[in-house]
Design a protein around this nucleic acid. Sequence first.
DNA 1: CTGGATCCCGAATGATACTG
DNA 2: CAGTATCATTCGGGATCCAG
Lengths: 115, 115
Amino acid sequence: MKIREKFTCPLELTHDVIKGKWKPIILWRLRLGEMSLSKLEKDIQGITQKMLLEQLKELMEFGFVNKKVYNGYPLQVDYFLTEPQGKRMIEALSIMQQIGIDFLLDRQSRAPIQE
Amino acid sequence: MKIREKFTCPLELTHDVIKGKWKPIILWRLRLGEMSLSKLEKDIQGITQKMLLEQLKELMEFGFVNKKVYNGYPLQVDYFLTEPQGKRMIEALSIMQQIGIDFLLDRQSRAPIQE
DNA sequence: CTGGATCCCGAATGATACTG
DNA sequence: CAGTATCATTCGGGATCCAG
C-alpha cells in the first residue's frame, strides 16, 4: 500500500494505517513487546506467514513498526512497535478494544437465555 | 454489513465498525452534534448520498449512530452519535486524528525545501 | 535444511458509476 | 433514492527465492 497524498483530514491517514483485516491485530500483539515472525504467526490464529509479512512490511513503511535482525543461526528477526508512533497507536486500539468488550457484554445481557 | 459472530479478540469487532472508507469520517463529523443528511453530504467532500446513507445505516445497525425524525415540513432527519457508544468511539478517533497530524508534521519537517 | 521474504494469480469484497 | 453493473482493492494459496 502506498501512502496517500491527498487527505480531507488527518484521520484518513491513520485509518489507512490500520486498514485491513490483520493490521490492528498485529499491532495489538506487538504491544506485548518485540517478537519474531514465527511467534506472531503462532499467536495470531488463522494468519499465514505471507499475510503477516505483507502487513508487517506495510506497517514498517508507515513507520509504526520496525525490525531488528539478529545474524545468528537460526536467523532471527524481531518486530517491534516504534516510539512514539507505534506505541501511540496502541492508545487508540486500547479504546477500541474496550469498546468491543463493552459491546459484547451489552449484547450478551440482552440476549435470550439459553437453557 | 452483518455483525460477525466469531472473533479472536474484541478489537476485531470495533474494527469492523469503522471499516470502510467513509465511516470514520462520518463519525468524526457527527462529533460536532446532530446534523441532517444534506449537511453531512455538504461537509464530507467526495461522498455520494448513496454511500452516506449506506454507511449511516450500518453505523445505526451497530448502534453507534441514531436518528431523529422531525415530522414537519419539510421533513427533516437528524443523525447523531449514540451515548455512550458513539461518543466513546470519538475518543479513539481523536487519538487517530492526532496521530495523523503528528505524522504529517513530522513528514513535513523532513521533506526537502521547495523553492 | 530452516526461517524470512517476494511473486503471481484467482477469488472475494468493497467502492463508485449507471439507470430507472 | 434503490438496484444493478462495473471497476478497484484486498485476501489468500502456493510456488519460489535468498541467506545462514
